[in-house]
Amino acid sequence: MAQTDSSTNTNAPGVMTGNPLIESDRVEGTAVYDPQGNHLGSIKRLMIEKISGKVAYAVMSFGGFLGMGEDEHTIPWSKLDYDTSLGGYRTDISEEQLRGAPSLSRDRDYDWSDRERERELHDYWKTPYYWGI
């Protein structure tokens, strides 16, 4: 799935209207839905590549109750499409896939420069590496 970046003024579902930019704090907390429109979870934070400024990943939280017992998984940004009819992001990811996905740690000491772990993540989701090959 590719991020919609159209700025045309049409009201078709999934097509961006007006300004194609959004502040990062407005993305955090945005709902994520499966292909059938069922709520999967929400975006906790974005992982942005320092040099290019491109969003590489969204960390998504799901499960739990009232913020307790939530799981977090890192999803390649290319797996999300903003759907204006839902007011959130739609993905082709199922809950079962999410539960079986490799995780990248939130721990401050986690080595985000470990390309092998990132390759594992991208291979699992069948997405191209954001950094190129």
Rank of each mutant, 00 (worst) to 15 (best):
G63F: 01
K50P: 09
F62M: 10
G53S: 04
E70K: 12
K79G: 02
A58W: 06
I43Y: 04
K50H: 09
G69D: 11
V59Q: 12
A56N: 14
I51H: 13
G53N: 04
D71C: 05
G64M: 08
V59H: 05
S52C: 12
D71V: 08
K44C: 05
E70I: 01
I48V: 15
G69I: 02
V55L: 11
I75P: 04
M47V: 15
I51Q: 14
I43F: 07
F65P: 04
W77E: 08
G67M: 08
E49P: 07
S61N: 02
M68W: 09
A56L: 14
W77K: 03
G63L: 10
D71G: 10
S42Q: 08
S52L: 13
A58C: 06
G63P: 10
A56P: 10
K50D: 10
M60E: 03
P76V: 07
E70A: 02
S52I: 15
D71Y: 02
G67R: 00
M60S: 02
V55P: 06
E49Q: 15
S78V: 13
M60F: 04
F62K: 05
S42C: 00
M60L: 15
E70F: 00
K79P: 02
S61E: 04
S42Y: 11
S52G: 06
Y57F: 14
T74Q: 00
W77V: 11
L40W: 11
V55G: 06
S52Q: 12
S61F: 07
P76D: 06
G63D: 03
W77Q: 13
G69N: 01
A56C: 14
V55W: 10
K79T: 08
S78Q: 15
L46I: 11
K79Y: 01
E72F: 02
T74A: 06
G63A: 11
F65E: 10
M60D: 05
A58G: 08
F65C: 09
R45L: 00
I48W: 03
G67E: 00
M68S: 02
Y57L: 10
L66N: 14
T74P: 03
G41H: 00
M68I: 15
